[in-house]
Amino acid sequence: MLLIDCPWCGPRDDEEFHYGGEAHILRPRDAAALSDEAFADYLFMQQNPKGPHLERWSHNHGCRRWFNMLRNTATNEILEIYPMGEKPKTEAGQAAYAANWRRETAAEKNALSGEGS
């Protein structure tokens, strides 16, 4: 069982938490402008790496706050925990962020600028 260091409540067993999937998936601003395929990139497609993974968690049996976490999916090592709305600061986190196929997709551009595809 993972021991997750809630940024507010401190270390707690993972059964107090809710896993919220991949982090840093930006919601399109003008989704109507996106093709079905580009929208599907946002809605359905997620990374599934063996290794460092940026993901969202919520301490929903505690303070109910959401946060981001960098976890090695192969070893369950937790490498970084950082607030919602921020980017990872560790080297491994920044590398995982940059390596994500999602960067620069039509869906992400739309989320950042409202452009279509």
Binding site: H18, G20, R27, S58, N60, R64, R65, W66, M84
Partner: peptide
């Protein structure tokens, strides 16, 4: 309740 909190905190802070 979790759903509403998720949207409020993560998408519309």
């Amino acid at each position: 309740l979790d759903w509403l909190e998720e949207w409020r905190q993560t998408e519309w802070p």
